[in-house]
Design a protein around this nucleic acid. Sequence first.
DNA 1: CGACTAGTTGAATTGCCTCAACATGGGTGG
DNA 2: CCACCCATGTTGAGGCAATTCAACTAGTCG
Lengths: 248, 248
Amino acid sequence: MLNQQTPTLPRDCGACPIRHRAVCAQCEAEELEQLDRIKYYRNFEAGQTIVWSGDQMDFVGSVVTGIATLTQTMEDGRTQMVGLLLPSDFVGRPGRSVAAYDVVATSDMVMCCFRKKPFEQLLSVTPAVAQRLLQMTLDELDAAREWMLVLGRKTAREKIASLLSIIGRRNATLNLGAPAGKMVFDLPLTREAMADYLGLTLETVSRQISALRRDGVIVLEGKRRVTVPDFDRLLDEAGDDSDGGLPV
Amino acid sequence: MLNQQTPTLPRDCGACPIRHRAVCAQCEAEELEQLDRIKYYRNFEAGQTIVWSGDQMDFVGSVVTGIATLTQTMEDGRTQMVGLLLPSDFVGRPGRSVAAYDVVATSDMVMCCFRKKPFEQLLSVTPAVAQRLLQMTLDELDAAREWMLVLGRKTAREKIASLLSIIGRRNATLNLGAPAGKMVFDLPLTREAMADYLGLTLETVSRQISALRRDGVIVLEGKRRVTVPDFDRLLDEAGDDSDGGLPV
DNA sequence: CGACTAGTTGAATTGCCTCAACATGGGTGG
DNA sequence: CCACCCATGTTGAGGCAATTCAACTAGTCG
């Protein structure tokens, strides 16, 4: 089950697809070289657990391609997703040796890893990395707070619309410019994963997606491919004021 | 309504009650002097709004005494608290000129403020401040994620128990050592503010507090003073495994 | 062709919300 | 000093949104 062959990996930072969005974004040539010296790539398969909460974690790193989730689980099995890691997102926490959450690869993934000790060393020496990491952490904190509003105060329909608009927006900013008019993307999550993200049951997720389809807010091809005919309509359903949202 | 007289303010960082927990915690004498040069104190009264979401915010700072809240509000009035700011917590975001949340003083407060521009300048020069700010932001991110589990997956009773255990724990670590056995503290929030924190209505908060009292998990004197006879029992009610929780 | 996973849909249940009445306590003005 | 007000909190009754339990469909892999 674990023996997919390693595909060709990026080797050169210059050709790296996340070069100007990841923790290394603000590095000059020399700093980049320092990072390059301690980096190594790791592949993970869809479904594979990267770290278990409570386990030793001796590396940090960036998602290069693919998607991972951060989840918390209670003793009785209730689970809540607390982070969705897309390409360029940072994994792990400098200054902590034990993972606080389960990290699971949702799709096949490539990560650019750094052994923790040397990375921490580097943090205290090269301000460019530390500054970028602070920026990214502040952005994640904002995203987490946005989600607290979703979890605490929105209805099931609004939650689904919020999730779709977030995914749509990140997709749009990644590919083209600003999100507008028509929009097509694939859901990177199962119904169950969406439920864990939104604090719902998978049945409720399924019902609300069906409802949004019935009402013409979205169009589905198969289970995963979503078309949004009118993005403003979706934002409206999410309960967001049309300009607002995450500065992702 | 706004004319309470300014009480005696701390002036010297050496005597500051949050000296070794705030953003200045890791500063040496010289760095402290630099901070000292750009700092000023501000007082706020209970109930006063410090900044409105969307407003210009030209300072950042630390809570010295008192309590403030960070809240988000939807157009129809639904509100969600996304942060509870206690002494030593940091307010504001370097690199952003506009407030993302309403900041409201819940009690009378003293803040140690820095004009944003000079502070940002200082951030890029003195690593001690930047490093400490990163640490604090990572801690807040962890706290936010803990709350995502509370908001998304816990029952009303568990939510109340979680809030009480957090407040109790922060209180204990502030005063003595580890939280244990019996414990007494004052609730710093109204029922409504608790509801906004927990994604509940104030009636449900009131009912669940009454239920916990009836069941002997807590004892109340008046509306605000809480005694917890057995902290482990409270953690149990919160659905936390007895060791876990925030590394606050 | 089963067997398994992911997703959809229905019916019954329930936990929390809504609406409403009442209780308490601190502050103010007559 | 009492009467009154207003903010805060408590409690009850009924309704509803989301959950729970369950049956069924569609697609995939050996």
